[in-house]
């Protein structure tokens, strides 16, 4: 058990947490947050696991760096799509019924 392995296991936990949020939360922005949490978990696993034995490893670090930039682009595109969807339908959830659990609280 080393520190990078601890982070990799935390990444696995974050991944599951994000998956749960993605499936259970109804508000689209919350789904987006959950998606980002899941992505952070994947990045932690990707960097933590190879560094468990070999020390700092620049190859997965470079790949994660690429991944972070793609993730922010995906997030920005998702925000654009959510705002467009909201503009067209007036809804912030994908459920058809207006009385959603999360939507009306803001």
């Amino acid at each position: 058990m080393t520190a990078p392995l601890l982070y990799a296991l935390a990444g696995a936990l974050l991944c599951g947490l994000g998956l749960f949020g993605l499936l259970c939360l109804s508000h689209l922005l919350r789904k987006l947050l959950a998606f980002n949490v899941m992505g952070s978990g994947v990045f932690l696993v990707m960097v933590g696991l190879p560094q468990h034995q070999g020390g700092p490893d620049p190859v997965p670090q470079a790949l994660v760096l690429t991944g972070i930039v793609v993730a922010i682009a995906a997030t920005a595109l998702a925000v654009v799509l959510i705002r467009r969807y909201y503009h067209l339908s007036g809804l912030t959830t994908l459920d058809a019924e207006p009385t959603s659990r999360e939507g009306g609280q803001e």
Binding site: L9, Q53, G54
Partner: peptide, 21 residues
Amino acid sequence: VAGLAASIWAIAGNPLPESLP
């Protein structure tokens, strides 16, 4: 999460095939 953690634990136990750094 349990499956993921178990596989991470299993992979962490194996020696690296070749050292990328």
